[in-house]
């Protein structure tokens, strides 16, 4: 595998970073980096860390991870976010580490429900958020990491990282796994024709990979990703989901736009790229602005309306009447 950490890779331009990667060789991971400056979204770090964990555990090569010595002025960021620890590499950097509170959540591996509960408790003080700001972030992390733990089949759980950006008053967050991927997960209970088809189903209210039954099982309803996408849409945030060879990007609504939730993700303002290097697993990146949010309870009212309507419509389509002749 080859990954080049570029000058810039955020959700808006992440496609170029992904296109430059090569995930085919499962024996080695070769990391190169821009020599002058690197500024990347936490999801990029999560992807590198997740690949590193996987390669270390599965490769029979003596030295499976090769990493160019970082020379860019911003190289310390990667050290502080814990990337080199995840890769078991010596960064060859000597820096004084400060308490991370108020700035970022370093790369964290979550492999079970107890670790998730602890993480959700710890993350808000780390990001110095007020309770009203914390609610959608807690919600999103809980639901997406839960999805990973329950459905992804990932040996290494979920890799999570987040960073607060003062200039834009935004939290940027990545949640990544190297499990089955969405297509295989959804295919357990639904017919899919492509990675895009599977991603769209996963983002649709009431569709879960665990059952084809409307309303889900006692344990799964197929709502987690739809809620996440909806929270992003109402708050006019960016949301990216990448699995297999497909990346779906929910674009920010214009500030002046009246947001209407849609059950079909293709009806939202979005871009799709279906010709990317194949990611075995699922990558989710989110940007959450902190200063212009709807109240979480109000946001739930919007979601309730569209969720209930969509599920009811689908139920009524499947309702069969007795035929009398």
């Amino acid at each position: 595998m080859k990954i080049h950490i570029p000058n810039s890779a955020f959700l808006g331009n992440i496609n170029a970073f992904i296109k430059s990667a090569d995930f085919t060789d499962l024996a080695t991971l070769n990391i190169t980096a821009n020599e002058k400056w690197m500024s990347v979204h936490p999801v990029v770090l999560c992807m590198v860390a997740a690949l590193g964990l996987k390669i270390r555990a599965t490769s029979i090569v003596n030295q499976p991870i090769l990493c160019q010595v970082f020379t860019a002025a911003s190289k310390h960021y990667f050290q502080r976010m814990g990337m080199f620890n995840f890769l078991h590499l010596d960064s060859k950097m000597n820096i004084t580490e400060h308490e991370p509170a108020g700035r970022f959540i370093p790369l964290t591996q979550i492999t079970n429900a107890a670790e998730l509960t602890t993480f959700i408790g710890d993350m808000i003080p780390l990001l110095h958020l007020q309770e009203i700001q914390a609610q959608p972030i807690r919600y999103i992390v809980s639901e997406i990491v839960r999805n990973v733990l329950e459905h992804s089949g990932s040996t290494f759980g979920a890799i999570v990282a987040a960073q607060y950006y003062k200039k834009t008053n935004t939290i940027r967050m990545g949640i990544v796994d190297t499990g089955y991927g969405i297509n295989k997960t959804i295919s357990y209970s639904h017919q899919t024709t492509s990675d895009l088809d599977a991603i769209c189903m996963a983002l649709t209210p009431g569709i879960t990979g665990t059952t084809s039954r409307e309303g889900g099982t006692d344990y799964n309803a197929g709502a987690g990703l739809f809620f996440t996408k909806s929270i992003s849409k109402i708050n006019k945030d960016l949301f990216v989901i990448y699995s297999g060879n497909t990346l779906y990007k929910l674009l920010r609504e214009k500030e002046s736009a009246t947001v209407v939730l849609k059950s079909n993700p293709l009806d939202d303002r979005h871009t799709v790229d279906t010709d990317l290097p194949y990611w075995q697993g699922t990558v989710i990146g989110i940007d959450i602005k902190l200063d212009e949010h709807e109240e979480f309870s109000k946001l739930l009212q919007y979601i309730r309306e569209i969720y209930t309507t969509t599920v009811r419509e689908r139920k009524s389509r499947q309702y069969k009447k007795a035929k009398f002749i």
């Binding site: 309770e131 839960r146 309303g215 344990y219 709502a223």
Partner: peptide, 18 residues
């Protein structure tokens, strides 16, 4: 309780209703 996820609530009551 300050926050509850839909997943939690679903696991709590959906099967009771069903």
């Amino acid at each position: 309780v300050t926050l509850m996820t839909q997943s939690f609530c679903h696991a709590l009551i959906s099967e009771v209703i069903r």
